[in-house]
């Protein structure tokens, strides 16, 4: 159980990182177009095929 003293602060650090990452992603405009991004995964695959 003592490991929680390390693990819980560690998880909070990870949450902090995730939040920072989220804020960065939104600010850099990655979520400006919510209608399209769902399909972009198909496009990258296509490029790999051709490359």
């Amino acid at each position: 159980m003592e490991s929680l003293y390390l693990l819980i602060p560690l998880s909070l650090l990870l949450v902090g990182l995730a939040l920072a990452f989220w804020v960065w992603a939104v600010r850099s405009g990655q979520y400006d177009d919510l209608d399209r991004e769902g399909a972009r995964i198909l496009e990258d695959e296509e490029e790999a095929d051709r490359g």
């Binding site: 998880s11 949450v15 995730a18 939040l19 804020v23 939104v26 600010r27």
Partner: peptide, 24 residues
């Protein structure tokens, strides 16, 4: 419009991540 949308989306994400972690 984009500024307004980004602002609300940031808050929504913070609340969402916070909700899950607080749940844990």
């Amino acid at each position: 419009l984009a500024r307004e949308s980004r602002d609300l989306l940031t808050r929504l994400g913070v609340a969402g991540i916070g909700m899950m972690q607080a749940g844990l």
